[in-house]
Design a binder for these strands. Structure first.
Ligand SMILES: [Zn+2]
Ligand SMILES: [Zn+2]
Ligand SMILES: [Zn+2]
Ligand SMILES: [Zn+2]
Lengths: 164, 164
DNA sequence: AATTAGTACGTTATAATATAACATAATCAC
DNA sequence: GTGATTATGTTATATTATAACGTACTAATT
């Protein structure tokens, strides 16, 4: 039978090849922006790459500090504008309960993802469960509520942070 | 057949008796706190009543202004402490995507509610759909993720704000 | 009633997150 | 190349939230 990491999202597989996560995300971002005629400038690229440095979401001011350490000395609006661009292109998601930003695992396909947030290690895994988004859509339909956006943030302890 | 307001939550029924919403919420809060040995002080009572003034969530600084207009001149920590108490007692919920606070419609019963947020009128309706919370719980179980809290915030247009 | 422990509130200062407004520079369309 | 558009730089400020410490109130104990 499969081990406990069998079907987990990459974010929750400890030994996964994260360099590949980053590379794939950056390549896909470039492709999508090119296809859409959106300009993935050097600054925006750098911000996206910082966001992808780990599977824990990054705050705007943490990004600011990382850019500063790189030699650029941007001010907050610069960072927030880059984040706004990446949000519009759906290359990142904002985690409202953390005021922080994380890379989208499937920016090429429209989806309403759900985020599982580990309170201990900070890892956030994005999943896209039709059962969840469908249940929300059905409930909204009952109430004649026209849905524009679903935010689902689940806080708890991930498999790597609980005793077996 | 029932009208469009047939089974809607109170928040979305335009003509509902909101004075009764407030009264019931305050009465229940007093009962619950008494039962729990928690002190619903005059300040906490006032904050809870302000939060219940409408079905649109209220920011901490709006509450601060309302308390100021009443003659008290509290500073931010005072308001945040009252909000923390009300959150601990589960008399209110925090709406993360709005940085604002709203009364819980069923504080006596443990639940993980979902919030429908109308982008136009600001109304927030709390529902508790087992289909949603169950789908989230099931998905988390698959990932061996131990859930502590679910945040579900659905943004869109409520029935009173869409053309028929 | 005085003592004491615990809780709630007051007060000052500051942290953390985010945006408004306007100037300059880079890029694109023609 | 010229002008329009888009992106970034820059200054200032708004908004949300908390740290730290002091005082006052409450409740139980003697
Ligand atoms: Zn990875
Ligand atoms: Zn996504
Ligand atoms: Zn009401
Ligand atoms: Zn509730």
């Amino acid at each position: 039978m499969a081990g406990k990491e069998g079907n987990l999202p990459a974010a929750m597989r400890l030994g996964h090849d994260h360099a590949r996560c980053i590379e794939e995300a950056m390549t896909l971002a470039a492709e999508l922006c090119a296809r859409r005629g959106a300009r993935l400038t050097e600054l925006r690229r750098a911000v996206l790459e910082f966001v992808w440095q780990s599977h824990a979401p990054l705050g705007a001011y943490a990004i600011l500090d990382m850019l500063s350490a790189e030699g650029r000395k941007p001010m907050p609006p610069t960072v927030y504008r880059a984040l706004d661009f990446l949000l519009q292109q759906k290359l990142i998601h904002r985690i409202a309960s953390l005021n922080a930003y994380i890379g989208c695992i499937d920016p090429g396909r429209p989806h309403s993802g759900q985020h599982l947030i580990c309170r201990l290690c900070g890892t956030v895994a994005e999943v896209d469960e039709e059962a969840i988004s469908g249940a929300i859509a059905a409930s909204a339909r009952d109430l004649q509520f026209s849905v524009e956006h679903q935010t689902v943030e689940v806080t708890g302890i991930c498999v790597n942070c609980v005793p077996d």
